[in-house]
Structure formats: structure tokens, C-alpha cells
């Protein structure tokens, strides 16, 4: 990533210098051209890497999504749009008509819903947390941030299994609640949307807290006094000053949570059991037991499109909010 960026700055400086001097000599122009060229040259490795790692697989996915599935997985070289219609529809075996596939719809809906809920909830919890940390004395902050990032030190699978251990029917939570006499029968949390939501909130909370912390840390606390001085109530200070100023942190945190949440695989797999699938699990299914690689590919591309569209809408919306004040 730094390759193209540094190449750009290296080339833009002589170029702007050239614009200001009225009679730029041919030699000077050649120099500018050379530096533009060397800028591209320097960023070539990064561009190649980007092409191979990002664009390549994407193209493969796109191509696969228009092929027909092989009997034992993989693809066969025959053009078909079945993988695309298959996202939302099933083809009737008898009369070949298309029917909306409820199961697919509910998976898509659950993915979007749980991701949005996770984003909203991690924000609701993460904002006060980040505020708390950012307002600690400098010496204590390191410790708090360390505590927040501890989960990163353990494998996601193990953390999720630990949550499973807490939530399952004979798990810690139910035992405690029964022990306290609050309930008599264990409550079914595990293998529900709630379990997936709890798990994802836990897993993605640090991704919300850290960018929020960075933004709040840069927030000039004297603005609060300026707000109160100008007759704002606490709520108005929050809405009119704090939130707009730390907005970049909110955007960053929301993206960092929403994007991986939408494609989550491990958490819904373990906490949702086999039934409460999200797109990630559904895609995996197509490449595994489902033996429908084209459908897996078309679903992957769809996921990418949803994420990109959501981001575009979100950023556009957030920016308008900022300029509107």
C-alpha cells in the first residue's frame, strides 16, 4: 500500500514546481517525466502484489460463478447463470419454474441483521469504553488498552469455544442462573441468533473500541467547556460536538466491525450450530458438502457487492452529516 502512495508524492512535487515556473525548459520537463516514471517503477511491486492477491482471486470467482458445478465439487466448463439465480431462487424439478428460496433469503437477512446489530451494539458499548480509557491518566491508558486487546492474543476458535462453554445448556451461565434460583430450566441460548450476536459482539468489540479510542484521544476536551459555556446541555454537547468531531473514529470502527461480521464464519458455525447459518457458512457449505462451487462463487461476489454498497452508502451518508453539522 505504501508503494503507490510514496510514488505519488515523489512525483507530484517536481510537477507542481514545474507549474509555477513560467518558462520550464525541456530538460526540466524530461526530469519531471523521469520522476513520474520512477514513481510508477517504485510502486510496481506493490501493484503486482495487489493484482495477484486481490484482483486475481476476484476474477477467478467471477468466472467460476458462470460455470456449471462438477459432480464431486470443482467446476465444469460450460456457461450457466444458474449460480446467480440460485442465490435467491430454486428451480422446480418438475416444471422448471423459479421460486423464491426462503432458506437463502433468511440466511441473507440474518447475516445483515446480525451484522448491523453487532455494529450498533459494539458502538453502544464501545463508545463509553473508549471514552473511559481516553480520559484515564496517560499512565493507566496503556493497561486498559492492553486489557482490551488481550482477546487478540488467543485464537478466535478457542475464544468462541469458550463462549460456547459459557452459553451452552449445561454451561456456566445457565448453572449460575439456576444456582441463584432465577430460573429452573436451562434457557436455550446456544444455537440461536442471540448466541451468534453475543459471540460476534465479544469478538468484534476491540475493533470498535480501538478506532474510537484513537479519535477520542485526539478530541480536545476543552471543546466540552466551550459547549457548556455556550449554553449547551450535556446531551447537546454529546450530539452537537463530541459525536461529529469523533465521527471518523465511528466510521472506521463501524466498518471494521460490520465488514468482517457480515462474512463471519467461525462464530456462527460454533455458536449458531448448523442451523443459524450466515453467508460465510453458506458459502463454505457450497464449496464443501454442497458441491456447488459456482453458487459459492456467486455468493462470494454478492457478499462483496453488499459490503461495498453498504460502505459507499454509509460513508456518503456520514459525510453529508459532517458537512451539514
Amino acid at each position: 500500500m505504501s508503494g503507490p502512495a510514496s510514488g505519488k508524492t515523489a512525483s507530484s512535487k517536481p510537477a507542481s514546481g514545474n507549474q509555477t515556473s513560467t518558462g520550464a525548459s525541456a530538460a526540466e520537463q524530461a526530469l519531471v517525466k523521469a520522476s513520474v516514471r520512477s514513481g510508477w517503477l517504485l510502486s510496481t511491486p506493490a501493484l503486482v502484489l495487489l493484482a495477484l492477491a486481490a484482483v486475481g482471486p476476484l476474477l477467478i470467482m467471477l468466472v467460476y460463478s458462470f460455470l456449471t458445478p462438477g459432480e464431486y465439487g470443482n467446476v465444469e466448463w460450460g456457461f450457466s447463470t444458474d449460480a446467480w439465480t440460485g442465490i435467491l431462487f430454486t428451480r422446480d424439478v418438475f416444471d422448471d419454474t423459479l421460486r423464491l428460496e426462503d432458506a437463502h433469503l433468511s440466511i441473507l437477512w440474518r447475516s445483515v441483521k446480525l451484522s448491523l446489530m453487532t455494529t450498533a451494539f459494539t458502538f453502544a458499548v464501545g463508545f463509553p469504553t473508549a471514552w473511559f480509557i481516553a480520559t484515564r491518566p496517560q499512565r493507566q491508558r496503556g493497561l486498559w488498552l492492553f486489557l482490551i486487546t488481550i482477546p487478540f492474543w488467543t485464537n478466535l476458535l478457542i475464544r468462541t469455544l469458550a463462549i460456547n462453554e459459557i452459553l451452552r445448556t449445561e454451561g456456566l451461565l445457565n448453572n449460575i442462573l439456576i444456582g441463584l434460583g432465577l430460573i429452573t430450566e436451562p434457557i436455550q441460548i446456544i444455537y440461536t441468533d442471540t448466541a451468534v450476536f453475543i459471540g460476534m459482539t465479544y469478538v468484534y468489540l476491540p475493533l470498535m473500541v480501538l478506532p474510537l479510542f484513537a479519535a477520542i484521544d485526539r478530541f480536545d476536551m476543552r471543546l466540552l467547556e466551550a459547549g457548556y459555556d455556550l449554553y449547551a446541555t450535556r446531551l447537546q454537547v454529546l450530539r452537537r460536538i463530541i459525536l461529529p468531531v469523533v465521527k471518523p473514529g465511528i466510521i472506521a470502527g463501524s466498518i471494521l466491525v460490520f465488514v468482517p461480521a457480515l462474512g463471519a464464519y467461525v462464530t456462527p458455525r460454533i455458536l449458531g450450530g448448523g442451523k443459524q447459518m450466515m453467508i460465510g457458512n453458506f458459502i463454505e457449505l457450497q464449496f464443501g458438502q454442497g458441491r456447488n462451487w459456482p453458487l459459492g462463487a456467486s455468493l462470494s461476489v454478492t457478499l462483496l457487492v453488499i459490503v461495498t454498497a453498504a460502505l459507499l452508502v454509509y460513508v456518503r451518508f456520514a459525510n453529508r452529516e459532517v458537512t451539514r453539522g
Binding site: D220, R222, I241, K247
Partner: peptide
């Protein structure tokens, strides 16, 4: 420090 609102 003036404490002007940077987003406005």
C-alpha cells in the same frame, strides 16, 4: 486556546 469547534 480559542476552542473553536473544528467540525463547524
Amino acid at each position: 486556546s480559542y476552542a473553536l469547534f473544528p467540525h463547524l
